[in-house]
Design a binder for these strands. Structure first.
Lengths: 206, 206
DNA sequence: AATATAAATGAATGTTCATTCACTTACAAA
DNA sequence: TTTGTAAGTGAATGAACATTCATTTATATT
């Protein structure tokens, strides 16, 4: 390396991206299967075919691992949920896109979603900065726009959120419980979703 | 004791009910504050002012402790939720009683409720027999009756449950998050509940 | 081919864990 | 007051835990 160069170009071994992904995926699988207390660094290392010390190259410690997992899942979720969406869409079209996008995410990454839900329902969430992201601002703006256009009844934001999405997530959890705990006789088809959606719209219209 | 008596009447020291309650309450507090991995038997013993060995008089082991806690909370919840309710009530009155009863339970026992939710969102739930209790049968019958009387639109049970209660629990969780994480600017008044309730009824009527 | 760098490691460390056990204490009945 | 019983205990045990560290390994540049 030229000793006069301004840009520092290290000569080094490169990180194995597969290792990082393996650690991440195995960690979430273990947590979903056995809970937070079922995740130990040594068991995780073994499951990911990695030395315990390797985990500490990627993550400062156990807590950092958990919060980074959470942020990673959240980012993926945001990306999927925003596809084809913008806050100026008509209320009915926009909300339906949200339902479809969110369902797509959950069915594509069921383990990620279950980890996310477990995390959100645990005290871990208090160690994470709840920031007003671009995603949340977009969701908020969408509701405000819809109320201005009188496509959506005026109401407190919590009430809007609870009817519009509380219903959705309740159905999704029904579905995930069925497929993990008993013989799945509750299929979450788009038809079934649409039927619930129509009723939600009825509640929310002015 | 008469050596010929048929009934066995032991001469013994009696259990201290306070100890059992202390263990139960402290355990839930610790879990809600620090998660399942924050609950250790030795820390719990110290918090409940009891020897670690004492816990094992009341509970077979750690897992048994958790499931017994869950069942205890669930029983309390069932009792509160069924007060003044029966499945033959008119749909609107019956559902509103459910909302009020459930809210009463949550506001009276917020720690119990948060423990319950954390448990339900964790893999622990898979080690518990999900049985069709009298409570669940009562809830089911109520919905069936309401559909027969045409006070409630005919729909899949999951959809009914998700609209009728998913909305409710979503609002409640909003409330609990606000009071624990930031300055509470979302007051969960009965007025606010009633306003959401009216909208839910609009969605559910035939 | 040589080199410098960070990736990756396995073994080791000290701590905390769930659980047990030999023992003491309190009490209801006799 | 005595006594049998279960309640209740503190200290001990071995396993599992998170984390660290002295090395080794792979690789991008020279």
């Amino acid at each position: 390396m030229n000793e006069h160069s301004f840009i520092f170009v290290p000569e080094m071994r490169t990180r194995d991206e597969n290792k990082e992904a393996a650690i991440r995926e195995k960690a979430m699988e273990m947590i979903v299967a056995e809970g937070f207390d079922g995740l130990s660094m040594q068991k995780l290392a073994k499951a990911a075919n990695v030395s315990p010390a390797t985990i500490y190259i990627y993550y400062k410690n156990r807590e950092d691992l958990l919060t980074q997992l959470f942020n990673h899942v959240q980012q993926t979720f945001y990306d999927v949920a925003l596809a084809g969406f913008n806050p100026d869409l008509s209320f009915e079209e926009g909300l339906w896109i949200q339902w479809k996008n969110r369902l797509k995410f959950i069915l594509k990454y069921p383990v990620h979603f279950q980890f996310y839900e477990q995390f959100r329902n645990s005290p871990c969430i208090n160690h994470t900065d709840v920031q007003l992201s671009a995603f949340k601002q977009s969701m908020k703006l969408f509701a405000i726009n819809a109320m201005k256009k009188e496509e959506l009844k005026k109401m407190d934001p919590e009430i809007f959120w609870s009817i519009a999405y509380g219903t959705f997530y309740s159905m999704v959890k029904f579905h995930l419980q069925e497929i993990t705990v008993m013989g799945n006789n509750f299929k979450l088809t788009e038809v079934k979703m649409k039927s619930a959606f129509e009723m939600v719209i009825k509640a929310l219209k002015p």
